[in-house]
Amino acid sequence: MVETIMVVEDDEALRASLTTELQFEGYAVRDASDGKAALALYENNRGQLDLILLDWMLPELDGLGVLRRIRKHDDLPVIMMTARDYVGDKVAGLDTGADDYITKPFDIEELLARIRVILRHRHPRQPEERQLHVGDLTLDTRVRQVLRGGHRIQLTQREYELLQCLMKNAGQTMTRDELLNAVWGVDFEGQPNIVDVYVRYLRHKLQETPQDQLIYTVRGIGYILSADYQG
Rank of each mutant, 00 (worst) to 15 (best):
V2F: 06
G97A: 02
L180F: 05
V183C: 00
E129K: 15
G97D: 02
G222T: 00
G88C: 15
R68G: 05
D107I: 08
R142M: 15
L54F: 01
N193P: 10
N44H: 11
G190V: 10
G231T: 07
E43Y: 07
R200C: 07
K168F: 12
E128M: 13
L64A: 03
R203I: 12
Q145W: 08
R176P: 00
T173A: 13
N45F: 08
D212V: 00
R176S: 07
L22K: 01
R15L: 08
E129W: 08
V134E: 01
Y27N: 05
Q211L: 11
G93W: 04
L112S: 04
L132N: 03
L49Y: 00
N44S: 13
V78D: 00
G35H: 00
Q48G: 14
V91G: 03
H121D: 11
C165E: 14
A16G: 06
E3W: 09
C165R: 03
K72Q: 15
G97P: 01
R120K: 11
H204L: 11
N44F: 10
A37I: 08
L41E: 12
H133K: 13
T82W: 06
D55I: 02
Y201E: 05
Y86E: 15
E43K: 13
P59E: 02
A227I: 01
M6T: 01
Y229E: 06
E159C: 04
E161T: 12
M57Y: 10
I115Y: 04
A98N: 00
G65I: 01
I5D: 00
P77K: 05
G231W: 01
T173L: 10
Q23F: 05
K72E: 15
D107S: 07
E189Q: 15
E128H: 13
R68W: 08
I79C: 01
T156F: 12
L225A: 08
T217I: 14
